[in-house]
Nucleic acid binder design. Sequence first.
DNA 1: CCCATTTGAGACATATATGTCTCATGAAAA
DNA 2: TTTTCATGAGACATATATGTCTCAAATGGG
Lengths: 188, 188
Amino acid sequence: MKNMIRPSAEQSVIAAGFDLLNENPKASLAEIASHAGVGRATLHRHFSGREDLIRAMAWTAIREMDQAVEAACSESPSYSDAIRQMLGALIPLGDRYQFLLREPVEDHADIAAEFQKQQHEMRELVDAAKNEGLFDTAVPTDWITRSFDNILYAAWESVMAEETTPSQATTLAWQTLVHGLGANKNGQ
Amino acid sequence: MKNMIRPSAEQSVIAAGFDLLNENPKASLAEIASHAGVGRATLHRHFSGREDLIRAMAWTAIREMDQAVEAACSESPSYSDAIRQMLGALIPLGDRYQFLLREPVEDHADIAAEFQKQQHEMRELVDAAKNEGLFDTAVPTDWITRSFDNILYAAWESVMAEETTPSQATTLAWQTLVHGLGANKNGQ
DNA sequence: CCCATTTGAGACATATATGTCTCATGAAAA
DNA sequence: TTTTCATGAGACATATATGTCTCAAATGGG
């Protein structure tokens, strides 16, 4: 078997894709290959084309987010705590989330379906947290999930800009959400 | 003089640009011209190329946002009220804001400078509102502006998805912000 | 009506991005 | 060492996007 310790060309290219395509969606495959430290031909050996690369990146993003959420809140004692753990786990994956939102993924029915499945689970989680008293039942669930997504993204931006540490950003985001959308305004 | 009532080709193209480039930053000039109901040659008569179009769109976005903010909060009795008015005025311009954030505008020094100038004015406004007791002084101003920007964007998404009316979205966004970041948690 | 201007359609050339191929090199496995 | 395999570099053809030009038609002002 070949060396599996050194990141494979696939992984390098996908990582470079997250770096470049998020900043400039018009980045060429040549730029991506170069940024990955890989020849242009090698990129085509692993991905049949731009669409194929984007599909692979989307699945990577979805899988990583799934795993992060699973690991973070599988043992949470409550739905409210699960949302809290989820927040901290997803902030470092802000670029993955950004990619799924910005890249036209609607073309791929399977990916869009999986993405919507995640959104639906989030809605159920929010409804459960409402019943626990975390969120105000008078606030629409749609608005809560949108706020969660966007505050999560704000937290990632904040960390990237080095305005806050990941830990600080998580706390700020959580406080903002539970105070802003909460039933009781004590913050924890 | 030519007819100024019918939208000029320039305006049509810029509007089409906001429609298409926000959804797919790789949209070709041919697609933009077609969506604007204009020949491809006509687009080139008004804009020397893609970069020129993007520059014109960026200036349009900045100008519209400036005017909306000016009109909304020039007569506000307080900084806190000014922020409230600003929120309502900017939500309908969410696509303009989105464009400035996503399109690589950093290349154009003049536009980037103007954008940062707006950001700086926002920071001063937030600091003033802190002194009025609207925001918690313990919360970093950077985080407040980031939250404002992202909740603003969430509100625009919510309106676009027809989950809420513009009025409802404005109220939800305001409540979320002042509860989430406020010094006193009464919401108004 | 006549004239000036703008426009749409399309031809054309060029630039850039993409996809495929070959070949020599280097690293790892046998 | 020998073999196998992935890779990098680059040539090549193709596809798509871009920029320029011409010309006939439409529009609006005089």
